[in-house]
Simulated assay, not measured.
Amino acid sequence: MVYLILAAFIFGLDQFLKNRIEAQQDDAFPIRLDNGIRLEKHHNRGFLLNKLEDKPELVKKVSVLTLIPLLLWTLWLFAKKAGSLGKVGASFLLGGAASNLCDRLFRGYVVDYIRLPIKKIRHIIFNIADFFLFLGAALSAVYGLFSK
């Protein structure tokens, strides 16, 4: 149960932040934070880096079809006596994927709002869901490598 609450928290946090960003006028951005991070308002109609943005229905369908096996795997993992690393990874993946899917289905785009000051990736704008998707994938990979 705690892992589903974790996934719901990630979903809720990201949706809250996206709603706050969307409520601001476009000319309020970018907002520069002291640590070099910039808050921006970006509408991503495709996948990472707007890939397939010209095919929004395909993006929605692939997103739904990807979430279904993720949800089934997560529920199976939660039900079995697996290690907490795998369950945390699955919770991160589920919360992040659900938040971005919700955006795609109800807004028609994913709200991205964080630009990091790291040279190699500063051309990419993220959201909290993306960070949890990345972390969840990494934790799930480590769990998969070391579980029996």
Rank of each mutant, 00 (worst) to 15 (best):
G36C: 07
R104M: 10
F29R: 04
N35Y: 12
F9H: 05
K87A: 01
R104N: 07
R38I: 06
A138Y: 01
E53Y: 08
V110D: 00
F132K: 04
L4M: 14
D26I: 08
I68Y: 00
K60G: 06
G96D: 09
I118R: 04
P117Y: 00
H42L: 14
H43V: 00
A79T: 06
K87G: 00
A97V: 09
F9K: 07
L49D: 01
C102W: 15
F131E: 05
V62A: 11
L49I: 09
D54E: 10
I125R: 00
F132V: 06
W73S: 06
S147T: 07
L77Q: 05
A8T: 15
L133Y: 08
S91G: 03
V62G: 01
P30A: 09
L70I: 12
V111R: 06
S84K: 06
V64L: 14
G136I: 13
E53S: 14
L39H: 07
V88N: 02
G108I: 13
D27E: 11
I5L: 15
G86R: 02
W76K: 12
F16W: 15
L65F: 13
G95T: 09
F47G: 09
A23W: 04
V88A: 07
V62E: 01
N100S: 10
A8I: 15
R20S: 11
I68A: 07
K61A: 13
R20N: 11
D27T: 07
S99T: 04
F16D: 04
H42P: 01
I68P: 03
K55F: 13
L52A: 11
E53R: 13
F92Q: 02
S99Q: 07
N35L: 12
G12C: 15
I5D: 03
E22F: 06
F146I: 03
S147W: 07
A79I: 02
V59W: 02
R104Q: 10
S140Q: 00
K148F: 13
